[in-house]
């Protein structure tokens, strides 16, 4: 049998049989080379209570070339692209070793959620948020976990809660409602205000570095 197929089949089976770990690997369609992995967000982090799904593509020369993984679930994390789910992690690149497995790689992703590396960011805006105001960053991360990863907040009253939070774009962007209201009060559209404040990193102590006229100037740009 094809060595790659044998190895992947065994990896999938091993993962199923392992009752102790909470890593899951499932088929998406018939192909064993395009899979979906998932794991719970680590405890004691803003991702706690969420379930994170990962798209897994097994390349032709696996396991001698690294597996390709990206988050399907939206994650607010400096090393994960908030738009595409792309992940910045050494073992997915040049530090890959053929002895690593799908399960061990997913565990590494889980531990990446515990220990962000803002100095080697995948998402520069999120990393800025993390470094300027960790508590505000964590609020947004918790928020995203609730909305996208089925976190605890969403469980309480699933439908109504998720419907109302889904509209709260201010919290999604990690911004303060009062700040957004202030500029909306000047007659700017809320979407635009959120976009500009997010880009300027209008958060935490950093707001003292950004004069109002700078914000307005940005808002006036077409």
């Amino acid at each position: 049998m094809d060595a790659r197929l044998r190895r992947v089949n065994k990896e999938i089976a091993d993962c199923k049989n392992d009752k102790t770990s909470n890593i899951r690997i499932e088929l998406i369609d018939e192909s064993p080379f395009h899979l979906k992995g998932s794991f719970p967000g680590p405890q004691g982090t803003p991702y706690e209570g969420g379930n994170f799904e990962v798209d897994i593509v097994i390349p032709e020369s696996y396991p001698f070339q690294p597996v390709k993984m990206k988050f399907i679930t939206k994650v607010y994390h400096p090393n994960v692209s908030s738009a595409s789910g792309a992940i910045c992690l050494d073992i997915l690149k040049d530090a890959w070793s053929p002895v690593l497995t799908l399960k061990s790689t997913l565990i590494s992703l889980q531990s990446l959620l515990c220990s962000p590396e803002p100095n080697d960011p995948q998402d520069a805006e999120v990393a800025k948020h993390y470094t300027t105001s960790k508590s505000s960053f964590e609020e947004t991360a918790v928020y995203w976990t609730q909305i996208y990863a089925g976190g605890p907040g969403a469980k309480k009253s699933k439908e109504s809660a998720s419907a109302s939070v889904a509209r709260d774009e201010v919290a999604m962007a990690g911004l303060d409602h009062a700040h957004v209201r202030r500029f909306v009060g000047l007659g700017f559209e809320q979407g635009k205000v959120i976009d500009v404040l997010r880009r300027l990193n209008y958060r935490g102590k950093n707001i003292h570095n950004i004069p109002d006229d700078k914000v307005v100037e940005e808002l006036l740009k077409p």
Partner: peptide, 8 residues
């Protein structure tokens, strides 16, 4: 720096 992350 990152090698501690992988979990094999």
């Amino acid at each position: 720096r990152r090698s501690t992350r992988s979990a094999s």
